[in-house]
């Protein structure tokens, strides 16, 4: 027996920051390995809802004579409904996956299994573990957006092809990254505040309204005739993600001021992230 259980002077004394980075990278590697194992189910749950949405609204309804597209033509300034839907569905893909990617495992780890305890014993400040959750959630949100994109671009009825402009790609990248970060911060916050048995309730009373009222199916500006709703939906983070993607992908469709949405996304990410990390630490160190 060559190995002993007894202590030995091994733990490498690297600089503090380098040590944090090693741990952070290891946490990320763990999550990536688990994700790779569940790649198929990840793709399936990411793609099904947006594909059905685009199929019903951009293929089925126009084909059977319900002119959803025409009804929106006025507000969307002559755009096909698919053009309205593409940024919205990519946005909802990012937001919903970004939230669930963090919230669902976290709720389990914090309650029934306490699996997170071992990661909290890593020699880094506890918030590092939370930051990794945010980073990995953002990666999944981003991946979800990228999976949804081709699906919603390609599926449409005759004459309903979306007109999407990739010219301003730096803006698109910035919006995608910011949006993914905001939603994974939200996921961490919800995951630390929510009792486990409430997970399905959250879906019903939080995610579904967020989706329906998130300017996914209509640009924010077209809500003008229902002023109270137009003001009310401003609390919904998905609104800003949808509108920011509209600004980046379909600039001819009416959208919120670019500066305003970017500011909301950035400030929202910082505030939500700060709250989430505070709440995360509170759950783990008492």
């Amino acid at each position: 027996m060559t190995a002993t259980i007894a202590p030995a002077a091994t733990a490498r004394d690297t600089g503090a920051l380098r040590g944090y980075w090693r741990t952070f990278a290891a946490l990320l590697a763990r999550d990536l390995r688990v994700m790779r194992r569940h790649l198929l189910s990840f793709t399936a749950r990411t793609v099904v809802q947006p594909v059905l949405n685009i199929f019903v609204f951009a293929v089925v309804l126009p084909s059977i004579g319900f002119g959803a597209g025409q009804a929106f033509a006025a507000g969307g300034q002559g755009q096909s409904f698919a053009t309205i839907l593409v940024p919205g569905l990519v946005a909802s893909g990012i937001v919903i996956q970004g939230i669930f990617a963090v919230t669902t495992p976290l709720i389990m780890e914090l309650s029934y299994t306490r699996e997170i305890d071992d990661r909290v014993l890593a020699p880094v400040p506890v918030w590092t573990v939370g930051v990794e959750k945010i980073a990995f959630g953002a990666v999944q949100g981003l991946a979800a957006g990228l999976v949804v994109f081709p699906a919603v671009l390609l599926i449409h009825g005759p004459g309903e092809a979306p007109r999407v402009d990739f010219g301003n790609w730096p803006l698109l990248v910035a919006v995608l990254v910011l949006s993914s970060l905001l939603t994974s911060c939200l996921g961490l916050l919800i995951g630390t505040l929510l009792p486990p048995h409430q997970l399905s309730t959250v879906f019903a009373i939080f995610i579904v309204p967020m989706m329906m009222l998130g300017c996914v199916y209509y640009p924010w500006a077209t809500l003008e005739p229902i002023r109270w709703l137009q003001v009310g939906v401003l609390v919904n983070p998905l609104v800003y993600v949808s509108e920011a993607l509209r600004a980046a992908l379909t600039p001819t469709v009416p959208h919120m001021s670019l500066a305003a949405v970017l500011a909301v996304l950035a400030v929202g990410t910082l505030v939500t992230g700060g709250l989430a990390l505070w709440s995360f630490k509170r759950r783990l160190v008492g």
């Binding site: 040590g19 290891a26 590697a29 390995r33 194992r37 299994t113 071992d118």
Partner: peptide
């Protein structure tokens, strides 16, 4: 710990490996 906090998404070997990597 008092309760089984093993990482259920990982194998036995991976549980040990990642613990070591978390520690640097």
């Amino acid at each position: 710990p008092q309760y089984n906090t093993l990482d259920r998404q990982l194998t036995v070997l991976e549980n040990l490996e990642f613990r070591g990597r978390y520690a640097g």
